[in-house]
Design a binder for these strands. Structure first.
Length: 786
DNA sequence: GGATAAATGGTTTTT
DNA sequence: CCATTTATCC
């Protein structure tokens, strides 16, 4: 489904007289530094703005737009301005409006690559054999489609999972390769069947009148390449092009931009090669590195004055990133003086790390380290991988520290929302076969694989959509009993909803409620006893509420992206927990960077898969992390960490060695005080400094010693060995009458033994047969602390 | 077809 | 360890 903003009509040009605006005063220029000003005023020709972290990149970009408009060089509809996220696009719109007052209306061509491509593609769909009302499939639809193809091709979907094929195809699309253009070197992909499946997939999409995210770019590039008249039209139309986050563009986006800028070359790209962290998703740092070759005579402007961070933070970040090769090179500087050094601290294990950060956060409210008191809203914890968040959530829940998680599953990706949306899609367009497949047996209607196959056959034989296929099947009495009744009811429902959806008198909100009610979908979750069910019902209500902002279902479906932006701004101050990737572009007064251990960060997998390239991207991630901090940056690592239930020890991240010592304040691990709860709770500040001054604490010998100590003290042993003992006893010693504990069913008594299977009467969950090793003697379970 | 037990596998994420 | 998928039994 479409997940972004298609609101402004193509023709929504704002009729503004160029001359009327020319010669207006430009007060907005006053607040710029010389480099920013140069970037704003160099309106003609190619410009590359190399904007380091916190150097006022968005300010320069938006001022440039304002300047284009204010001088009369361009009208709002003549500026093509692309971003990667809806959030960035929205922010730019707001800031341009702010600069120019209320006098300029929205810019129709300021948006994400994808949103802009949707508009273009709707206009020229027929040039790539599509109808202009094509559907946009999201990853989930895409994978289900690929799964069908894989099964049809008789490929073992265990060994060759659809998700992998989706990745392969996405990668090819990111490189702008059509099936016939995939290079021979890639022929081995997906068991040598990748290219053929890709071709088949594209064909299938065409039949469905659908596109995936990659197609949006790819189709438009194809249209431009094959229809020069169309390309020329847009070259005339978009007289000025601006690109944000240029380091994140992939090949398809790069081609798209080059085609459009090919005539006038009025293209201004803003980016920071040091913040390229999406290589694994197809982004090519090379695009920014070779800008000057692509656009000869390009003006390269460096924004290097940083307005965000203290000198220490900046120096630490620069020290780390300096190890990367092939940079365009920038030297960030700041007028700010003083400030706290970057703090570095090691911990025994991940739990202690979480405990320590929790205590620091609590202390933050009273003002620490010469800094004014901070609100939790000013603090963020940035992790490499989302699973690292759990330790913090656990800890914060027990001490009652409010936190918010950014990222996580998006609203519109949730199961219940996608189901509900599928119903809405069918109401709007009964041709939407993928939506039909999704909901035909959700809630359960007794229409299993066999029944669904019959529907497919009937539809294909008659060349109609699945809803009509179902109709034919029913008329031919090809289905009997309960299934037939249920299917007839569903088809009748879809017909009814479709009529209602086309009736302008019908309230779409009531219709949505009616659909969820009549389809039995609401009831399905009401009857569900799993703990998630109430939340899902809540989400469905939220979904219906979101409809209020739209005129009809159709409009809503095209705007789904807007729902995902419902970041509820609540009054309570909370610390933010997110991944480093999600943090790009944000800033916080205080930032914690936990988990700096080799293998975790830099991630082992990144290094295994792409070697040095991967390591450098990880290093850029470290750079992004440090530069998010304004006043206080705290890096930490743990010597031991429980990963997948196993205790593992790790060495501090190699990035830690790259931090320039003179900008780092090494805090002694609380464990060295004798450990224990609360050792860090009342840390005497002077004491910390005293220990910190022992230089060897942070150089490798120091860490080695600390680790050695960790081993002799056996920090991780008690828990580990206890678990092993439990398991061994569990297998051998059960008999009738024993009290046992199962992690899912709780306590119970053994009532029978058959080999390694036990029959257990659980206190709460009834009688079950369980393999012995899933169960633990109740007495041992009681022993486990906490 | 559906509930439930067992096995599996496990970065980063936008559109 | 834990969430999700797969296999099995009714």
């Amino acid at each position: 489904m479409s997940t972004f903003d298609e609101s402004e009509a193509f023709e929504a040009a704002v009729p503004l007289s160029r001359r009327a605006m020319a010669g207006r005063p430009a007060p907005y220029l006053d607040g710029l530094n010389p480099a920013q000003r140069e970037a704003v005023e160099a309106l003609e020709g190619p410009v590359l703005m190399l904007a380091g972290a916190g150097t006022g990149k968005t300010k320069a970009l938006t001022t440039r737009i304002a300047h284009l408009l204010n001088t009369g060089a361009a009208r709002p509809n003549e500026i093509l301005s692309v971003t990667f996220t809806n959030k960035a696009a929205r922010e730019m719109k707001e800031r341009v409006a702010g600069l120019l007052g209320e006098s300029v209306e929205g810019m129709p061509w300021l948006g994400t690559f994808h949103a802009i491509c949707v508009k273009l593609l709707r206009r020229h769909a027929e040039l790539v054999d599509l109808k202009s009302n094509f559907t946009i499939l999201d990853t989930d639809d895409q994978i289900r489609l690929l799964k069908q193809l894989i099964i049809a091709a008789n490929i073992d979907e265990k060994r060759w999972p659809p998700r992998l094929l989706a990745n392969v195809i996405d990668n090819w699309k990111n490189r702008a390769w059509l099936p016939e253009n995939v290079p021979a070197a890639e022929a081995g992909a997906f068991d040598h069947k990748g290219v053929a499946l890709y071709a088949e997939y594209q064909q299938r999409l065409r039949t469905l009148n659908a596109v995936d995210f990659g197609d949006l770019l790819l189709h438009v590039v194809t249209i431009f390449q094959r229809n020069d008249d169309v390309l020329q039209q847009y070259r005339r139309w978009f007289r000025f092009i601006l690109v944000d986050e240029y380091q994140d563009t992939n090949v398809a986006q790069y081609l798209w931009l080059r085609l459009l800028a090919g005539g006038h070359q009025n293209i201004c790209c803003v980016g920071d090669d040091d913040q390229s962290i999406y290589g694994w998703r197809g982004a090519e740092v090379g695009n920014i590195l070779r800008f000057e070759k692509d656009f000869p005579g390009a003006k390269v402007i460096r924004l290097e004055q940083n307005y965000r961070s203290t000198a220490h933070i900046l120096a630490a970040a620069s020290g780390v990133i300096a190890s990367n090769k092939g940079r365009l090179g920038k030297t960030l500087w700041t007028e700010a003086e003083g400030g706290e050094k970057v703090r570095l601290i090691g911990h025994w294990d991940g739990e202690e790390e979480a405990r320590w950060i929790g205590e620091e956060l609590e202390a933050m409210g009273h003002g620490t380290r010469g800094l004014p008191p901070m609100s939790l809203n000013d603090c963020a914890i940035l992790v490499r991988a989302s699973h690292q968040m759990r330790a913090f959530e656990d800890r914060f829940l027990t001490i009652g520290l409010p936190y918010r998680v950014v990222g996580g599953p998006r609203f519109y990706e949730r199961l219940e929302i996608r189901d509900a949306m599928a119903y809405f899609r069918l109401a709007v367009s009964p041709d939407d076969d993928l939506a039909f497949e999704r909901i035909v047996n959700t809630p359960k209607r007794g229409l299993g694989d066999k029944a669904q196959q019959k529907i497919q056959v009937a539809a294909r034989a008659n060349g109609v959509n699945l809803v009509d296929g179902a109709r034919v099947l029913l008329a031919a009495k090809g289905l009997t009993g309960k299934g037939a009744t249920a299917l007839a009811q569903l088809v009748a429902g879809i017909d009814r909803w479709h009529v209602a959806a086309r009736n302008p008198e019908q309230s779409h909100i009531e219709l949505a409620e009616q659909i969820l009610e009549e389809s039995g979908y609401t009831e399905h979750w009401q009857n569900d006893k799993t703990p998630e069910a109430p939340g899902r019902l809540e989400n469905l209500k939220e979904l219906v509420k979101a409809l209020e902002n739209f005129d009809n279902l159709q409009g809503f479906l095209e705007h789904v992206a807007l729902i995902m932006d419902n970041e509820t701004e609540d009054a309570e101050a909370k610390v933010t927990l997110m991944t480093l990737h999600a943090a790009k572009g944000l800033e916080f007064p205080a930032v914690f960077l936990p988990g700096w251990e080799d293998g975790l960060f830099p991630s082992q997998r990144a290094m295994d898969e792409t070697g040095l390239k991967g390591l450098e991207e990880e290093r850029r991630l470290a750079y992004v992390g440090i530069t998010r901090a304004e006043a206080l940056c705290t890096i930490s690592f743990a010597a031991n960490r429980r990963i997948y239930g196993q205790w593992q020890s790790a060495l501090p991240s190699r990035f830690i060695d790259e931090l320039p010592e003179e900008h780092v304040d090494v805090l002694t691990p609380p464990g060295l005080y004798g450990g224990g709860y609360g050792a860090a709770a009342q840390p005497a500040r002077s004491d910390l400094h005293e220990k910190a001054s022992r230089a060897d604490v942070y150089n490798s010998p120091g860490w080695k010693r600390m680790q050695a100590r960790g081993e002799t003290r056996g920090i991780s042993q008690p828990r580990e060995s206890r678990n092993v003992v439990i398991d061994l006893e569990a297998v051998s010693s059960f008999g009738e009458g024993d009290r046992v504990f199962h992690k899912k069913f709780g306590y119970g008594a053994v009532v029978g033994v058959e080999g390694d299977k036990l029959e257990i009467a659980f206190d709460k969950a009834g009688v079950k047969k369980i393999v012995a090793h899933f169960v633990v003697p109740a007495a041992s379970a009681d022993d486990v602390p906490f």
